[in-house]
């Protein structure tokens, strides 16, 4: 009985269920992601404000990239260039301390020769800042250190007879971006180093422990083990983190956007590319909305992301499966070549 049932089941094709199961994902994805993406491309070739909906070709690109088209266009181009520069500066300034700190901690936490008490507790606490709402984090740091005289830090300075400092960079400090950028970099590092640390730890734990054992039997010091065993084998993980972090850096929005006391003084030194995009499509008056500029800027960010994404994609791909596929292709090719040769009656 069972065998006939089994045979019957084997004869049924279940392929259609595969389509049914993945259908909702693809429908929703097309509607909410693919079409908006295509729409972004379309909008990037259309006009702004009063000319919304008219085709303007590559005008938006030439405006935001090269400032062609009058004085206002030059201003927009310099805004966009500054936004890209800010993004890079803020990203570099948060990534370098973040990766160094997390590598160091990950190495300590995974070293079996060291006995650091409370490892589990440290891990939990260090990851904590990452799960707090970015808005709350920004609000928290705004309350502690900002332009306002009522912020904790300035209040303390005033109470002790010092002048208040304009940490956000204001009228008097317009030319010195140091404080505001430094604080945003610190907040970003504060939020993300725990996450990176855990990624690094999983990378180190994935290294074959016998390698560490061999190194220690051969008398390697911990410095040598780190340089000659851990770091080289951890390279793929570091590269992966670097690139995902770059993609994330392109999206940097919440903290730089929220670190300012009032709307009017949104800091020039903190305006990232994502904020540039946002400011062009998010305006109170729908008649002044600049879909063209924000679309063009989005497309440029998209191209950068795709380039970075391809690198990650190649790393994420199942290496074994990929190799097998290649080998299979090579075999098929060879077989075909031999068949051809046989047909022609040739000999090897």
């Amino acid at each position: 009985m069972a065998s006939t049932a089994q045979a019957r089941i084997k004869s049924i094709s279940y392929a259609k269920y595969g389509y049914i199961f993945i259908l909702p994902f693809f429908l929703v994805y097309c509607f909410f992601q693919i079409w908006p993406l295509i729409n972004t491309f379309i909008l990037s070739f259309q006009g702004n404000a009063s000319t919304t909906g008219e085709w303007v070709g590559f005008d938006n690109y030439s405006t935001i990239l090269f400032g062609n088209g009058g004085r206002s266009a030059a201003a927009i181009a310099s805004d966009f260039r500054e936004a890209l520069l800010n993004t890079v500066i803020l990203w570099v300034g948060n990534f370098i301390p973040q990766i160094l700190l997390s590598l160091l901690l990950a190495v300590w936490f995974t070293d079996s020769k060291l006995h650091i008490p409370g490892k589990g507790f440290f891990k939990v606490v260090m990851y904590l800042p990452n799960i707090i709402t970015a808005v709350s984090v920004a609000a928290l740091f705004m309350q502690l250190i900002s332009n306002q005289k009522t912020s904790a830090f300035n209040g303390w300075l005033l109470n002790h007879g010092h002048d208040a400092i304009e940490f956000e960079g204001g009228m008097t400090y317009a030319s010195s971006p140091g404080w505001s950028r430094g604080i945003v970099m610190f907040i970003q590092t504060w939020m993300w180093f725990g996450n990176t640390m855990i990624m690094m730890m999983s990378g180190i734990l994935g290294i074959n422990p016998s390698l560490f054992e061999a190194a220690s039997i051969d008398g390697a010091t911990s410095g040598q083990t780190l340089r000659k065993v851990t770091l080289p084998l951890l390279r793929p993980m570091v590269v992966y983190t670097l690139i995902t972090s770059m993609i994330g850096g392109l999206q940097m929005f919440d903290i730089p956007y929220l670190y300012h006391t009032d709307r009017a003084s949104l800091n020039e030194h903190l305006r990232t590319a994502a904020i540039f995009v946002y400011e062009n499509f998010h305006v109170a008056n729908m008649k002044q909305v600049k879909y063209g500029y924000s679309g063009a800027a989005s497309v440029i960010l998209f191209i950068i992301t795709v380039i970075l994404g391809i690198i990650v994609f190649r790393m994420n791909r199942d290496e074994d499966e990929h190799r097998k596929k290649k080998e299979r292709k090579a075999l098929v090719k060879e077989a075909k070549a031999q068949a051809k040769l046989a047909r022609q009656g040739g000999v090897l």
Binding site: T40, F253, S294, S298, V299, F302
Partner: peptide, 19 residues
């Protein structure tokens, strides 16, 4: 799915909002 995993919302947001 692997290929689109990395596309952030920020690059589609213009089209998303307009739509």
């Amino acid at each position: 799915i692997l290929a689109v995993m990395m596309i952030p919302i920020q690059v589609t947001s213009t089209g998303f909002v307009q739509f």
